Amino acid sequence: MRLLACLALLLLSALPAAAAPLTIRVGYAGPAPGGTRYVPGLAGIVAAERYIEREIAGDPDLAVEWVFFKGAGPAVNEALAGGQLDFAFMGDLPSLSGRAAGLDTRIVMATNARDALYLVTTPASSIKGLSDLKGRKVAQFRGTSTHLASEGALRRAGLTSRDLQVYALDDASALAALAAGDVEAVLGKALFLTLVERGQARVAWSSKGDPRAGPSNHLLVAGAFERAHPDLVARVVKASVRAAAWASNDANREAVFALWEKSGTPAAVFRADYDGQRLAERLSPLIDDLLIDTYREKAARARDLGLVRRAVDVTGWFEPTYLNAAIRDLGLAGTWTRYGADGRPLGS
């Protein structure tokens, strides 16, 4: 019996060990409240409604891990550089900075390609627009897509951030500073409409209606992961496109805002932010000529402003193959409008 037991143990030890599940690591350039997955934008839909998890459900060899970074884009870049992430939902400037530094990534779909930028001031401020900001105390979240968009907006108004008294603050700190009157204005995203809703601030300018003026956001994949697992890249993109289709349907408008409200920002803020715009315009996942040309323009601006150390070539950075396949397989052709580099709908 002992001999048989030993032989059995030898046979078992000779069998290959079961492979550990492959964890798909997804990062988001921003914090989520209280350890939740609730953040604004398309990434918030994908995360909170577990679209990626549902895509791989039933496959015991796969798992998904989400990481939300308080340090925003720069922290995501550090994680990508350290091989700690496979995918990231993030904005244009940190991704451009990463590419300038040699990070091996591919942009596989847009998320909030035409986000809005706002100039929000204290109620008593005499600021009427961007041209009035010279010498004023203005908060700016540096190192983020908001930073790059605000620099572009200032340039079009004949200014640069050097003409302002800039306070480098993250969004939470800037909200507090504006509410307390420690700064007179903030260049930021819809989050600052929270103060407008409370009567503690007003909007002096916004980029709404100009597809090139606001921040742009996207989903990118680490090059090593794409080369090793193109099938999984296709599944993650497909899941994210499903989310984009649901979130782009104006019949779901209030449901989308209700989900985003769980991030801590009132639904009324999102209603104001998206007022007069179709969800599909803001949440389009398409990699079209307008998106690529906008990133090319922002890459040049970032270099001119010294926000990146070297010129950034966006050629070959965008990989629409997975996106286009998902749109075809899900029967979503025509859901979103494709634009040319001139900002006009193709075919019009």
Rank of each mutant, 00 (worst) to 15 (best):
A177E: 06
I107F: 03
D163K: 08
G102D: 08
R136Q: 14
G98T: 03
L169V: 03
T160M: 03
R106N: 08
S97W: 02
A179C: 01
R155P: 00
A139S: 14
I107R: 01
A174Q: 09
L119I: 10
R156G: 00
R106C: 01
Y167T: 03
M109T: 06
T122R: 15
T111H: 01
T160W: 04
A185W: 07
L117G: 11
A174M: 08
A168R: 11
D115M: 06
S97K: 14
F141D: 12
R155F: 00
L148G: 00
V138G: 11
D104P: 06
V108H: 06
L164Q: 10
R114C: 03
A185S: 07
Q140K: 14
R114E: 05
A101T: 03
A101W: 00
K189N: 12
D170R: 04
L159G: 11
R114N: 05
L187C: 04
D132M: 06
F192E: 11
K128E: 15
T146E: 10
L103Q: 09
V108A: 06
S150E: 08
D182H: 11
S126C: 09
V120I: 15
D132P: 05
T146F: 05
L133I: 06
V183H: 06
T144S: 15
A179K: 15
A124F: 11
D104S: 14
R142W: 03
A190I: 00
L193N: 12
A100E: 04
A185L: 05
D104Y: 08
K128M: 07
G188D: 06
A153R: 12
T194N: 10
S145E: 01
R114F: 08
L133S: 07
A168P: 14
K189P: 01
E184K: 09
A153M: 09
Q140E: 12
A124S: 15
S97I: 02
L191R: 14
D132W: 02
V120M: 13
K134A: 15
I107A: 12
G98V: 01
A179F: 00
V138W: 14
G143Q: 03
F141K: 04
A177H: 07
N112M: 02
G181L: 03
L195N: 14
F192K: 10
L103R: 08
T121W: 10
R114V: 13
F141Q: 12
D170N: 14
S125T: 13
T121D: 10
R156N: 02
L178Q: 11
T121C: 15
A176E: 12
A185F: 06
G188W: 03
A116K: 08
R99K: 14
L175W: 02
T144K: 05
L191K: 15
A100M: 05
